[in-house]
């Protein structure tokens, strides 16, 4: 009697062990730990235009790849600094894992950036820097060099004895200022070059056109116009073409919206200084993820600039840069 009880007990122990182990096996297998999606806010200067669309596209590709919940915010106009500050404030309140900021104004956005850092929200600068030491990194082109390249090509085209005008976008924006600075510094080497006018288009194609018209009328002998961003470029090119000055007034433009490419092929625009907006967006999100995880990220990521003209626009690597592969 006693012995049978004992043996049944053993069997019970064995069976329970078996069940236990099989359970633990399945439970460890089925236990999936879904990584929480990162929340990253990207605050751009403007919500439309080809340049910003490309940035946004890059950012979205990276967001998908790195499981990021991306919030893209931007004012309607690049000069709407107040709105951008407000957006920063709202984002900080939501405590995202990181904020990517393309500051419309170098100084004006500094305070709110420091505030983000105070709340331990890492801020990454993209496209244009902000006057804060708390920024994790800067992702974008070397704008000073971009300005210099534009000036260099312009002087090659017009010669060292000419009049040129500049159509910039927003005064106070770091990239606008740096491009202008680089350009003027380069031009300063040539005493024969006169910069007859510097105008700000507020990244509005129509304003840029209007400004171009003014310049062309008030300086009929002008040799060239340099436009310092995509919107300004389109406005300038369009107006130069409309006024029948295509090819006579040399135009150096910025970035690669399709209209710029059209103008380049038509010979209205002689060269384009092209940044890499897709990469800016992509790398900004990628680095924001790394920064939010506390990883060390480089202080500056230069996504490069390229000077594109008719001769090299069809080079395979330039085709890839200039024409996004949209499916």
């Amino acid at each position: 009697m006693n012995r049978t009880v004992k043996s049944t007990l053993w069997v019970l122990v064995a069976i329970s062990l078996l069940i236990l182990t099989s359970f633990s096996y399945t439970s460890t297998n089925d236990l999936v730990n879904p990584e929480k999606a990162k929340k990253i806010h990207m605050i751009a200067k403007m919500g439309h235009g080809d340049y910003w669309n490309a940035v946004k596209m890059g950012a979205e590709v990276a967001a998908k790849e790195y499981n990021v919940n991306l919030v893209f915010k931007a004012p309607n106009n690049e000069n709407d600094v107040g709105e951008q500050i407000k957006m920063m404030g709202e984002s900080i309140k939501q405590r995202p894992d990181a904020i990517i900021l393309s500051a419309s104004d170098y100084m004006a956005l500094a305070q709110v950036t420091d505030e983000a850092a105070y709340y331990n929200v890492p801020v990454l600068s993209m496209d244009a820097e902000v006057a804060s030491a708390k920024v994790e990194t800067y992702i974008g082109a070397n704008n000073y060099e971009a300005g210099q390249k534009a000036a260099e090509r312009m002087i090659e085209l017009t010669g060292t004895d000419s009049q040129i005008a500049i159509v910039n976008f927003v005064k106070g924006a770091r990239n606008a200022d740096q491009r202008e600075e680089g350009l003027l510094d380069y031009v300063a080497r040539y005493p024969g070059i006169k910069v007859v006018d510097i105008r700000y288009s507020d990244s509005d194609q129509r304003i840029a056109s209007q400004l171009t018209k003014d310049i062309l009328i008030s300086h009929p002998d002008i040799d060239g116009i340099i436009a310092l961003n995509a919107e300004a470029s389109v406005g300038v090119g369009r107006e130069v073409k409309n006024m029948g000055k295509g090819g006579k007034v040399k135009v150096i433009a910025f970035d690669n919206p399709p209209e710029n490419m059209d103008l380049l092929q038509e010979g209205v625009v002689q060269a384009l200084v092209v940044q890499n907006p897709f990469n800016n967006g992509y790398l900004a999100v990628q680095l924001a993820v790394e920064a939010s995880e506390g990883k060390h990220i480089p202080d500056r990521v230069d996504t490069g600039i390229k000077l594109i003209d008719l001769d090299n626009m069809l080079w395979p690597e330039n085709q890839k840069l200039l024409f996004p592969f949209v499916k």
């Binding site: 590709v61 890499n276 897709f278 990469n279 840069l321 592969f325 949209v326």
Partner: peptide, 8 residues
């Protein structure tokens, strides 16, 4: 494809 074309 775009990432490859962009060199990323």
């Amino acid at each position: 494809q775009q990432l490859i074309y962009a060199g990323l």
